[in-house]
Nucleic acid binder design. Structure first.
Length: 478
RNA sequence: GGCGGCAUAGCCAAGUGGUAAGGCAGAGGUCUGCAAAACCUCCAUCCCCAGUUCGAAUCUGGGUGCCGCCUCCA
């Protein structure tokens, strides 16, 4: 089946046809690091991490770029307040952001270019736009002339007339058209500045993404994304710059935008003062849970954050993890004889689940639906493997193995590595645990429940949970 | 004011023409020395109205409500 993606440009789901067969190039807007990142800043990276993992699992060779805008008004202002160099401040917060993402299980992009390290590329692009008549200079500033680009507005679906009608910005008289935007800003005293053909200055807000995406991915790359608030003006301007500069279109084949995280129904933003930083959230919920919660809703839908929602996610994830643990534990047991017990059906179910999981992901990366498939598999396999008449024969182990594989493959694509974290954390070795378990079984046979419970408690203190089943006790780290 | 989106059970959330996935919570039950885990059963006709259709949560029109963008913003 084909991978279908919702393209902001056409406002429709389209079949993904890569620029080059078997390859996928992705660029998405990272952050402007001037403070601790909030949870809203974590959604696009997690979404793109999953898209990347999925494309890879489908056989694509993926190259992903995430930029860091480290030259910016907000950074400069903040740095001045704190009396430190802007680039240093930006580097600090960028580092913290990357740490937050790593905790969320986001793999690093192949490149995360910084504006400050791409000034020559930016200057070259601005110069090119001037040459082609898409830009003009005023007092050391360089502006992009929106009227020189007839397609302006095609991404956000608005015309210049409409924008003017609703404009709430005061008009800069020096600009030829009110919607013209800065490509290059003349330096003000005390600001970071670089030498350019137009004097000392720094890049405008949008040009860096055009220059850097072109450098690392070339024209007409596959995916570009970010939060929906970037559609206008940022991505609209970026598109105009890129296509005006290269003279080729589209500059991007598919534009994907993720929805906002809201608090109490309102967008989370610094200006509303309702932000929750990623770090704050980690104090109450493990990063895995936060990631799982993010994936419980389709990426384009808004997502409201709340204690109840996170707690539900925590329990839900636990259910999957417990199943994974229990099944794997069964696989470590000796297979016995016994008659056919429905293992064939389980193998079929596993194969079907794998297909349905992929189908859900192919449908515009529907992680919520994909998780539903996993839950259904869990219920069926649990029912089967815990039924009173269940015998663990060779066929059963094969079926179980298939089911475990589906869970693990799904987990890998979603970036939820079942069990790994716990396994690393537990201090007791398997042999030790097994030995204690054997002693407990002996105690239970002798009806010495006090000792049995004591051992169970002791293991629990070491993070090992004992559960008795009709087939004998099983344990898991959790 | 302009443009766009959304509205599914107590909460979260899939589902874009064929008779409502899944998770969390809740109630009852099974299993169990206890515990845990798990399983079973129960729990919605999809904001409202009018249409199209044999058939609509899904399409059309109108209404109501909420949200976003138009200004820095993931």
């Amino acid at each position: 089946m084909a991978i279908m993606v919702y393209n902001t440009m056409t406002r429709k789901k389209e079949e993904f046809i890569p620029r080059e067969p078997g390859k996928a190039g992705i660029y998405f807007c990272g952050i402007t690091p001037y403070d601790f990142a909030h949870i809203g800043n974590a959604r696009p990276p997690v979404v793109w991490d999953v898209i990347r993992r999925f494309l890879r699992a489908r056989g694509y060779q993926v190259f992903m770029v995430q930029n860091i805008t480290d030259v910016d008004d907000k950074i400069i202002r903040r740095a001045q307040q704190e009396g430190r160099p802007p680039l240093e401040l930006a580097a600090d917060y960028a580092r913290i952001y990357m740490e937050d993402l790593a905790a969320l299980g986001v793999e690093e992009a192949d490149v995360h270019p910084k504006v400050s390290e791409h000034i020559p590329e930016i200057i070259q692009m601005v110069a090119g736009l001037l040459e082609k008549g898409h830009a003009y200079t005023v007092d050391g500033d360089v502006y992009f002339a929106v009227e020189s680009f007839p397609d302006y507005g095609k991404l956000s679906g608005r015309s210049l007339d409409e924008m003017l009608a609703g404009a709430r910005v005061e008009v800069d008289e020096r600009k030829k058209h009110p919607m013209d935007f800065a490509l290059w800003k003349a330096a003000k005293p005390g600001e970071p500045a670089w030498e350019s053909p137009w004097g000392q200055g720094r890049p405008g807000w949008h040009i860096e993404c055009s220059a850097m995406s072109l450098k690392y991915l070339g024209p007409g790359f596959d995916f570009h994304g970010g939060g929906t608030d970037l559609i206008f003006p940022h991505h609209e301007n970026e598109l105009a710059q890129s296509e005006a500069y290269t003279g080729s279109k589209p500059s991007v084949r598919y534009w994907l935008h993720s929805g906002f995280i809201t608090t109490g129904g309102d967008k989370m933003s610094k200006s509303l003062g309702n932000i929750i930083t990623i770090r704050e959230l980690f104090k109450d919920f493990p990063p895995q849970v936060v990631r799982f919660w993010l994936l419980g809703t389709h990426y384009r839908n808004p997502l409201n954050i709340g204690r109840q929602e996170l707690e539900a996610a925590e329990r839900g994830l636990e259910r999957l993890e417990t199943a994974w643990n229990n099944w794997r534990h069964l696989l470590t047991q000796e297979a016995g004889g016994g008659a056919e017990n429905g293992a064939g059906r389980i193998r079929e179910l596993a194969a079907e689940s794998r297909e349905r999981f992929i189908a859900a992901m192919e449908d515009d990366f529907n992680t919520a639906a994909a998780l539903g498939v996993l839950y259904e598999l869990v219920r069926e396999v649990n029912k089967w493997s815990l039924a009173p008449g269940f015998t663990l024969n060779a066929a059963a182990k094969e079926g179980l193995q298939e089911a475990v594989a589906v869970l693990e493959e799904g987990g890998e694509i979603l970036g939820l590595r079942f069990g790994k974290a716990q396994a690393a954390a537990a201090g007791l070795g398997d042999e030790e645990i097994e030995a204690m378990l054997a002693r407990r079984e002996e105690a239970r046979r002798e009806k010495n429940f006090r000792l049995a419970d004591e051992i169970r408690e002791k293991l629990k203190a070491h993070g090992v949970i004992i559960e008795d089943t009709p087939q004998g006790p099983r344990w898991r780290r959790g």
